[in-house]
Design a protein around this nucleic acid. Structure first.
Length: 595
RNA sequence: GGUUUCGUAGUUCAAUGGAUAGAAUAGAAGUUUCCUAAACUUUUGAUGCAGGUUCGAUUCCUGCCGAGACCA
């Protein structure tokens, strides 16, 4: 469905040509929303045409306004304020636009056709030595939501998770469990698998610190002590055994990772995120060695005198990057290069989005540039969706200092809070326990998800665990509540299907405003997909919900006696509910029928 | 030190180079015959500093101050 802007811009372009004899691109026409202080639905910024007309801004606007009014029957009138041409669109236009929206069941979303771009979205990517925390929550919510938005915008999407299941950190947990675990399992301890493994990671760190302190008291320097502590040596030995395929180590590794995966699965389910494919680094970490050969052959990489392979990116202001250490072992970049190439062979994507924190900005710049220099044209499609850290009121989260917000605890807190508030208000009386749980889960998660997704991804955000569970104002639950109100009105109307609309009725200002907002939905989705930003969808949905709440105050639907007006308002209510629902699904938020 | 991101009401967030910088929350004052008051109405309050580019700058450029990240 065409937006109002694109509908009008061709006419503006024509008018400019007719008046000033200059051809301009219709796509370059600049509109802005009309300032509420003036009359009008949409405003044309005429400053760009002042030079062409050779007249002042106001006169130029007058000329274009007159020309447009004569050419476009949908323009009822116009007025000029400084360099702004405010256009009033006829009610008839808005009403027929609304009827189109109403009849389009999947309004705002389009399904992928055969030529749709294929986008791979990698997100989550946890380590298996500890449970997920608040930082992962932002990652997961962003990744899931962006994938949904891209789907809604007509892309084919594949969501993948690359699990970091190997390395020294896992060995630390394994070693500590061996030493002090006493055979403890998730079943015997009643702990979630990932929580249990995380416990031993902390345990390792505690003993390790003790050893370092002991060595230091013997007069050994910090760095030296950290390297020489028996525990870390033992962990490194374990890693070597793992790499050489030691059956005992591998068995323990499989067992403990298995616990972690069960734990993660529960958390993912609670968060409502999903993946189409899961990759494991234990299968991919060796990739990338051929790339080194290829790069050397193509003279893109150089060998340093000490034997290390590097790529020189100084001309791109990115310094020199080691790709293979002098001892022949690979670095993260090596495997990421290999993984990208393999992945593109297996699934020839048009775009690949990596949802990874902004501390890796440099890494992904190098990754993209290196693949580009190697001649892989598809590297243009790589995009690092870089998001800011989540900070707490008393500073950053540091797992070593125990200031991490655990994802499972956070989710439980959100649900509990929703429960306390609902019970206090007496909203869930007489509800079955199971139904109540489901509702509190949905409301609690809406509060959390909306709070996180409404912030521009690239910005760092502050999360106050005690304040963010607010249900008032610009929050997920407020919008859910609006949806539930719409549904309630619809139920009480006792209509089972949308009545045929009589569009000869007069349009109230608030109704027109709502139609304008509804009309902007496809544009919001397209923008959100282009910028990979769920925040745009969140802001749009809030605008819609807020306007509806104000609208309702002005004209109670069910008391309306004029049947044509009543039907129109019911249809509007129905459409608002439908739009909120599909917008929220893109954010991974479910909307209850009742609250 | 080098590279980079960011500084907006008391607080948390908005604002494709456009009009009087929006919301929410906190503060002040109101609104329940009616759909679900998790609501609505009114009100107080902000672009770190100094320049530049132009019809117009929160937005682009330069310098400074401050915060974070990455690289040594």
């Amino acid at each position: 469905m065409q937006s109002v802007e694109s509908f009008l811009s061709q006419y503006v372009s024509n008018a400019v040509e007719a008046l000033f004899g200059v051809k301009t691109e219709a796509s370059a026409v600049k509109f802005s929303a009309t300032n509420p202080a003036f009359e009008g639905d949409i405003s044309l910024v005429v400053f760009p045409y002042v030079k062409l007309s050779g007249k002042g801004p106001e006169e130029t606007a007058q000329l274009i306004g007159e020309q447009l009014k004569n050419a476009v029957p949908q323009i009822e009138s116009y007025n000029v304020v400084k360099g702004f041409l405010n256009l009033v669109i006829t009610d008839g236009f808005w009403k027929s636009r609304f009827m189109q929206i109403l009849e389009t069941e999947t309004f705002g979303t389009q399904s992928a056709d055969a030529n749709a771009p294929f986008v791979m979205v990698e997100y989550s990517s946890p380590n298996t030595n500890k449970p997920l925390h608040l930082g992962h929550v932002r990652n997961n919510l962003l990744g899931y939501s962006v994938a949904e938005i891209l789907k809604a915008d007509g892309n084919k999407v594949m969501r993948v998770n690359l699990v970091n299941d190997r390395g020294i950190h896992i060995c630390k947990s394994m070693l500590a469990w061996q030493k002090w675990g006493d055979g403890e399992t998730p079943e015997s301890s009643g702990l979630k698998g990932d929580t249990l493994v995380g416990k031993y990671y902390v345990e390792f760190d505690k003993h390790y610190k003790g050893e370092i302190a002991a060595l230091k008291s013997e007069g050994i320097a910090d760095e030296e002590a950290a390297k020489k502590a028996p525990l870390i040596l033992e962990a490194q030995e374990m890693l070597q055994k793992w790499e050489s395929g030691d059956t005992e180590v591998k068995a323990l590794w499989s067992k403990m990772n298995g616990w972690v995966y069960e734990g993660f699965a529960q958390t993912y389910k609670k968060l409502g995120v999903e993946f189409d494919k899961i990759y494991y680094e234990s299968n991919t970490y060796i990739l990338g060695k051929e790339i080194i050969e290829e790069g050397l052959k193509k003279n893109v990489f150089q060998k340093r005198p000490d034997g290390a392979v590097i790529i020189d990116l100084k001309e791109n202001k990115l310094d020199e990057k080691v790709l293979l250490r002098s001892d022949g072992t690979s670095v993260y970049m090596t495997q990421d290069l290999g993984t990208a190439v393999e992945r593109h062979k297996e699934f020839p994507f048009d775009k690949h989005i990596y949802v990874v924190g902004n501390e890796q900005d440099y890494h992904f710049k190098v990754l993209k540039l290196t693949l580009n220099k190697l001649g892989y044209a598809w590297s243009d499609g790589l995009f690092h969706l870089s998001y800011g850290m989540v900070e707490l009121p008393d500073g950053k989260m540091k797992s070593r200092e125990g200031t991490v917000v655990d994802a499972d605890e956070l989710i439980a807190d959100m649900e509990n809070n929703a429960r306390l508030l609902s019970e206090e208000k007496g909203l869930v009386e007489g509800m079955a326990e199971e139904e109540k749980n489901e509702l509190c889960h949905r409301v609690g998660m809406a509060a959390l998800k909306y709070f996180i997704l409404k912030v521009d991804p690239k910005k760092k955000m502050l999360f106050n665990p005690s304040e963010s569970i607010d249900l008032h104002g610009n929050t997920g639950p407020f919008i859910q509540y609006t949806h539930a109100r719409c549904k309630s009105i619809w139920r009480k109307s006792e209509l089972t299907e949308i009545p045929k609309l009589d569009i000869s009725i007069a349009l109230q200002p608030k109704e027109k405003e709502l139609i304008k907002i509804l009309n902007a939905f496809p544009t919001a989705v397209a923008d959100a997909a282009k910028e990979y930003s769920p925040a745009l969808i969140a802001n749009y949905t809030y605008e819609l919900a807020k306007t509806f709440n104000q609208f309702y105050d002005v004209c109670p639907v069910l008391k309306e006696e004029n049947i044509a007006v009543r039907n129109f308002r019911l249809a509007l209510t129905h459409t608002v509910a439908r739009t909120i629902k599909s917008a929220f699904l893109m954010l991974g938020i479910e909307v209850p029928e009742r609250m």
